[in-house]
Simulated scan of single mutants.
Amino acid sequence: MSPELIMNLDMFPQQLESLQGRLANLYQDANTTVQPEANLLLAALKELDTASKILEIATQKLFEQTQKLGNVQARLREEYKRYQDLFEFIPNAYLVTDTQGKIQSANCATATLFNLQQQFLVNKPLACFIAVEERQAFRSQLNQMHSSECDYMQEWILRIQPRDCEPFEAAMTVAPIRDAKGKLTGLRWMVRDIHHVSYQPLLSLER
């Protein structure tokens, strides 16, 4: 919610109170009038007074809902920050791509592993960091993710080609991201360098 809208909402109760005061004065003046039109004016003022009271109740409810919304937004910001902190400090390279393998976000470990600053990873195809001789196999496996309706993780062994460095063997764990209707909307990846360590495959890849 914009600051301008919040400011207008803050001023609205005062404006409503002023309106009700003016209505009370008009009602008093009309009540002392002896002209035939006085009855019609009184009826109109009563209806307007009723409408203003209904509006006052609605305004109070709106303020309560606005306050609740503000609290929810604050909690969401806190949760998002926690997620970002976890995402950044995961020791393994972790990244999210769209369904075509274009990088949407990547953590610090990914930048180190791929030898490229984080801001330059975004929007790059993940295939750019696969060794040239294995890119076709990578794309074939990626296409199979599109045609498959499975929701379990898969682990691929491929050679990673960092920027301006020698390629190395890595274990790439990939999991699908699906919307409420089951449509594939993205992919989550974890990449581990297994060249210098004793490789242990994940014990269970199914969710």
Rank of each mutant, 00 (worst) to 15 (best):
A93S: 15
V174H: 00
T50D: 08
D151W: 05
T50G: 11
P36N: 10
S148R: 01
G182T: 07
S204L: 10
G70T: 13
Q73M: 15
G186D: 02
H196Q: 15
K61L: 14
V96R: 02
Q84D: 08
Q200R: 07
L202R: 11
I177F: 13
L126E: 01
Q118F: 05
D98Y: 00
R75I: 10
Q65F: 13
L62K: 03
K53F: 11
M145D: 07
Q14E: 10
C165W: 09
R163W: 14
A58C: 05
M172T: 02
Q100T: 10
P125Q: 06
L203V: 15
L69A: 13
A93T: 06
Q65W: 04
P36W: 04
E169H: 03
L62W: 01
Q14F: 14
I103V: 15
P125V: 06
A44C: 14
N39G: 14
G70I: 12
L48D: 11
A109M: 03
A175P: 00
T97W: 04
I103N: 04
L86N: 10
N115L: 11
T33G: 06
A30S: 14
R139T: 12
D164H: 13
Q141E: 10
F87C: 02
L5V: 14
L95T: 01
T66W: 02
E56G: 13
E64K: 11
Q154S: 12
L203H: 10
K81A: 13
K53A: 14
D164E: 15
Y27D: 07
I57C: 03
R178M: 06
Y199A: 08
H195Y: 11
N115S: 14
K53L: 15
S18L: 13
D193T: 02
R139Q: 05
W189G: 07
E4L: 15
I6N: 05
M153W: 12
T50K: 14
M153E: 10
R192A: 06
V122N: 06
D10Y: 09
Q144A: 01
L19P: 00
E149Y: 08
S148N: 06
L48M: 07
D151S: 07
Y80A: 15
I157T: 08
I177R: 07
I194V: 15
I90E: 06
D164V: 09
N8L: 11
Y152H: 14
E47V: 13
L41R: 03
Q118E: 15
S52D: 03
Q73H: 12
N123H: 12
M145W: 06
R207W: 12
L45M: 04
M172I: 15
E166L: 09
C128T: 05
A38D: 02
Q67R: 12
D164G: 03
R22N: 10
Q141P: 04
I90D: 04
K81V: 13
L205Q: 07
A58L: 07
E88T: 05
L76H: 03
L95D: 02
G70R: 10
P162K: 05
R77H: 14
L142V: 00
Q136F: 09
M145G: 01
M7T: 12
E78L: 14
I130C: 03
F89G: 02
L202A: 15
L26F: 13
G182Y: 02
A38G: 05
G101H: 06
S52E: 03
C128A: 07
A170L: 03
L95K: 04
Y83M: 09
E166C: 08
L5P: 04
Q14G: 05
Q141W: 10
T97A: 09
E206R: 12
L26H: 07
V191K: 00
D151V: 11
R82L: 07
